[in-house]
Design a protein around this nucleic acid. Structure first.
Lengths: 335, 335
DNA sequence: GGGAGATAATGAATCGTTTCAAGGATACGT
DNA sequence: ACGTATCCTTGAAACGATTCATTATCTCCC
């Protein structure tokens, strides 16, 4: 049933070595032979066995990508960027979804290690240094995505989340808000912690402003809705006058909860700003202000760094993008 | 650098066969030996080489999944479902994104074939029968996802799109609309054609109703926005009074375009219903009515069918789910 | 004490490809 | 006619795990 180079070689009456050469370096083979072998390949419907190639090569032509949440368009955009650049280099991308769960993340890394992938791109849940060093010892390079490498000796492509957090809250303050709520969590997610820290810095510059923390257990629409409901249930004078959500999914959820029953209006009563600027932000009930990150570019660059590190001198590099404020209706100043 | 079973065997002073047995059937090995081998594995940091295993096994433990659009939450939900059931069976899922492009789809299938995947789940761009039959000849089973198999002899898990299209338009008619526009395309996408055909059937039941086609080139927010703008630019008496968009992404785009400038109001001037009921539908400018499909369940079932077909008698099975109407503000009847 | 039976461990063969040293054929220049 | 350079092709070794027929060791019982 399975057709191998041997069968092709037999039919074309050449050696297996020649078949392999036709496949990999046709210019080393006489034209007549090439076409004879090609004909045999077509006739038998031969398809290369990747496992055997990889075994010989010692490494696969796939890149493993582990993201925190496939349902977040920010990450699928990164994946698209990565995939594009990978394809240009004749590589493919294996997409793994850790769902913020360290054990799922670990099992993907195990899988990738067993597969002897070309390299790994990862937006880690916790501090991955130790695990990634083991990968490196085994000859697998890793590039951090959406997370700086903090001198841990890995290449990384990230966006300055502290600065993004600062921009978001600075914008809220500039438009006259003073009682800010930060909605996000868990803290263990680095991006959340950084955005919060930027937010705090902005608050510190404004003596009459205050920052309240509303923790969530996940960065999803659902968690946002829950947080939003907790705000809506408060007496109106105990509500914040602005919300900075740690990402757009949360912001969408918060928005939904606040506006649904018509008690609270956005942005009149409460302004909202999110993070990531996913496509849907502009299509929300009230178009959402947000902090934009160059997501596809992150994926592209990450693959580039990976390829450079694998094939080149092995030098690491850190890239940090600056985010960008996108203002929409949800943070319109009060009349 | 690379640690193989040989090294482990040497350190534990057993044969390679025994190491393999410890890995795969520890109960066949004396407890003392197991722990000695385990110790050696830990000390050396041995990691199995998947390529070698697969080569021997003749087939990998991955399932290839090709979807039409990773950015569409409907498909990532399917992927999540598939991944979950796969993981329970000690399989992993490779996610490929065809982006409605037949050549991308083909190159993923080539890749999966070279990888000798365990099986393929595919939501195909065109008619994949021929290609999938070649896969089958090579011993790779395929299950169609979000598409009935039409007697082509493959298992499939789909949702009755004709019925969904009918439900959508029937609902619009029931709420008093008569000049319906169907926005969607390209026709070559089977789901679009089926939903349209259901829509036509509903129209046929209502003599005073009319259906207009507004073709799009893709099923994305962007394409929807373009279509929506073309409607907005018309004189108000030439606009339809309801829109049925072939999926929610389109619907969101249409909504954006119509409502943005405030000229057209939804649902007063134009009602909108989408398809898929993605999370964002309920959070749109005007919460969108939609046709809900059990997306995660589709992924789960597809993997189940695949596993059954691969390991069992090879019998195929077709599953067809019925969609469900979800009514929200965007189709509220006019006062 | 010897044979039957159970239990463990062995090691060579195998999967399908790539690589590479070696060999063979051909043409060319002298 | 001979040496040499050029161009193709060959065939065996290697990658690393699994399998399985075989051998080794031990137990138990008559």
């Amino acid at each position: 049933m399975a057709v191998s180079v041997k069968d092709v070689a037999a039919l074309a009456r050449v050696s297996v070595g020649t078949v392999s050469n036709v496949l990999n370096q046709p210019d080393k083979v006489a034209p007549a032979t090439v076409s004879r072998v090609q004909a045999a390949i077509d006739e038998l419907g031969f398809v290369r066995n990747d496992a055997a190639r990889q075994l010989r090569a010692g490494r696969s032509r796939s890149i493993g990508l582990v993201v925190l949440d496939v349902r977040n368009p920010f990450f699928t955009d990164i994946a698209r960027g990565a995939e594009q650049r990978a394809a240009e280099n004749n590589l493919s991308v294996l997409l793994g979804n850790s769902d913020d769960d360290a054990s799922r993340e670990a099992s993907y890394l195990d899988l990738f290690e067993q597969q002897r992938v070309h390299g790994v791109l990862i937006s880690p849940v916790d501090d991955p240094t130790e695990r990634l060093e083991r990968l490196r010892e085994h000859g697998i390079t890793a590039v951090l995505v959406d997370r700086p490498s903090d001198g841990s000796g890995f290449s990384s492509v990230s966006v300055d989340d502290v600065s993004g957090g600062y921009m978001a809250v600075r914008h809220l303050l500039d438009t006259g808000r003073r009682r800010i709520a930060f909605i996000g969590g868990p803290d263990s997610v680095r991006q959340v912690a950084d955005r919060l820290s930027g937010a705090k810095r902005a608050i510190a510059e404004q003596p009459d402003a205050s920052l309240e923390l509303v923790p969530t257990t996940a960065l999803t629409v659902l968690a946002g809705r829950a947080a939003g409901e907790s705000l809506r249930e408060r007496a109106s004078d105990e509500r914040p006058d602005a919300v900075f959500a740690a990402n757009d999914l949360l912001a969408v959820g918060v928005l939904q909860a606040l506006v649904m029953l018509g008690e609270v209006s956005v942005p009149e009563d409460i302004a909202i700003i999110g993070y990531d600027d996913i496509d849907f932000s502009s299509a929300a009930v009230v178009p959402l202000s947000s902090i934009r990150q160059p997501s596809e570019l992150i994926g592209l660059r990450a693959v580039e760094l990976l390829i450079a590190e694998v094939s080149g001198a092995g030098a690491t590099e850190q890239i940090v993008f600056q985010p960008e404020l996108v203002v929409r209706d949800s943070t319109r100043p009060r009349a």
